[in-house]
Design a binder for these strands. Structure first.
Lengths: 202, 202
DNA sequence: TTTTATTTAATACAACTGTATTATTTTATT
DNA sequence: AATAAAATAATACAGTTGTATTAAATAAAA
């Protein structure tokens, strides 16, 4: 009898509006009214989908991680040469296209937000960390890693490097555009591996 | 005739109080009242030193960069073996001691804040970037870099790695404590250089 | 001690915040 | 067309925000 709207769909579009607001004004500018306006909804309508602001922020945060995990799953499933795939996985963790920018930057802001909320960050539940671990396992499997490489240190190093790349891409997008990020990633892989990655196609 | 207080000193202590508030509650919790309370000052007193909140935040941000630059200057001047000094410079860019934590984390939060303010980040005026460039020049001078190393890519990579290390140390301090950070740094230097850094003393 | 510029405290105000309540509109079913 | 559940809009309220204004307190110099 009622009007019909897919709740999950509306909630996601609200969450995406929240990302945009957060990226433009920071957490301090992410009021429910601003988000409602960005989502083209009235305050009451927004409140119908999210009882409290905390609930909205929590959902918005979860959605980023979920989207990242989905993206990783998709890229891992692609049918391409191993080395190309590895580069693709890593590039997909960065704002290497305008479409990815929102997702990657929101992920970073929420990560910092964790600190201020006093929550502890569980890397083992972080889709980025899991993806990096998969990449490293893949390198081991393919016997690409240098013989004297320390798997654990390489994993931590790559994880941190990816975070740093994402952060710097966010702060100075003009300097760290797609090609530059790709070059750094390939350079890094080459320094860790015994085989050259070269300028893998895509 | 008046009461005497060193203006700059008071302003710095207010700025430091702002850091603490920002790290605990995020930018969204950094109200002038909260900062005044943290600084043990009345609202009027705080306003006497900073006419507006923007002014306070700007000063607080500048102070972080100034402190970092001073710290870098100090470490570079230390009299120690070249390799040890390089490790020390890098470690000083990370929360490798409780005393540095506040400064490093505030620096990171302000860096992200730059994005939300829509300001453009000038790496050439970033004391961290300058320090990294100095480190790299030093490595070249000492002829420590591997022959096939790309100086520019190595610089960007190290810069991003340091940011990523700082970020992760902030989010999961239990995993990235001093020793771990040092091991990663040395591991990275070893992978870029033809001579081993080993476990340099400090 | 008196004076006087500096420093601090107290209070006020309008704008914005999150949340709650209520009324209205919408639309698939009967 | 009538109905009723779902969705939206409008308004209200108390608390917090940044800023401004005013009065009070402080302490070095006269």
């Amino acid at each position: 009898m009622p009007k019909l709207t897919n709740h999950e769909e509306v909630k996601q579009s609200i969450a995406e509006a929240a990302w945009r607001v957060i990226l433009q004004y920071g957490m301090e500018g992410a009021s429910v009214r601003t988000i409602a306006k960005e989502a083209d909804l009235s305050l009451g309508a927004l409140r119908y989908y999210f009882k409290t602001q905390d609930e909205l922020v929590a959902y918005s945060r979860e959605l980023v991680y979920k989207r990242t995990a989905e993206r990783m799953g998709r890229v891992f499933k692609l049918d391409m040469p191993p080395k190309d795939k590895i580069v693709q996985v890593l590039l997909n963790l960065l704002p290497s296209s305008e479409e990815k920018r929102l997702e990657v930057e929101a992920r970073l802001v929420f990560k910092v937000y964790t600190r201020h909320k006093g929550e502890k960050f569980d890397a083992l539940q972080d889709s980025v960390y899991l993806a990096i671990k998969e990449v490293m396992s893949y390198l081991v499997m393919l016997n690409l890693l240098k013989k004297d490489a320390d798997l654990h240190l390489e994993t931590e190093r790559l994880y941190c490097l990816m975070d740093g790349l994402a952060l710097d891409a966010m702060i100075r997008p003009e300097l760290l555009e797609a090609n530059r990020m790709k070059r750094i990633i390939i350079y890094h892989l080459n320094s860790s591996c015994s085989e050259k990655f070269g300028n893998v196609g895509w």
